[in-house]
């Protein structure tokens, strides 16, 4: 079975979705990602959807689930690279992905995760004193 590769990028994981997702692939991605978050001690997950021509409620729900699961594992999910036509369609569909953080591209998404990392480290440091 095909699987979507997950790359480690510093303290974050990067997933680039390039294929038309079907159910099994989406489920496999959820499982692989959660395992990798724990094994790589990742603090963030970047999901690049710039190659996706559409996001329907099925994919939207998958993104929402991944974000919720990552949050429970202390990692933040940022969806990056959404195409403008996809954003328009998603809102019309009634899906605003309110549980998911978004950024324009991978670089900005990484910035978001890095900033969160610095904040938590600062908080931890303050706690030690």
């Amino acid at each position: 079975m095909d699987r979507i590769p997950i790359l480690k990028l510093g303290s974050a994981l990067l997933v680039t979705i390039q294929v038309d997702m079907h159910d099994r692939l989406a489920t496999a991605l959820q499982e692989d990602l959660t395992e990798k978050i724990v094994s790589a001690r990742a603090k963030g997950v970047l999901i690049d959807i710039s190659a996706l021509e559409i996001v329907d409620s099925f994919i939207g729900r998958m993104l929402d689930h991944i974000a919720a699961i990552s949050r429970m594992l202390d990692a933040e999910t940022v969806v990056v690279g959404m195409r403008p036509a996809v954003a328009i369609t998603l809102v019309e569909l009634g899906l605003s992905l309110s549980g998911v953080k978004t950024a324009l591209n991978v670089e900005r998404g990484m910035d978001l995760i890095r900033r969160r990392l610095i904040e938590t480290e600062a908080a931890d440091g303050a706690g030690d004193e």
Binding site: I54, V55, F58, A85, I88
Partner: peptide
């Protein structure tokens, strides 16, 4: 492009 995206998304749903 926007209309294409809308109809393809509707078809998917």
């Amino acid at each position: 492009l926007v209309d294409q995206t809308k109809i393809v998304t509707a078809a998917s749903e």
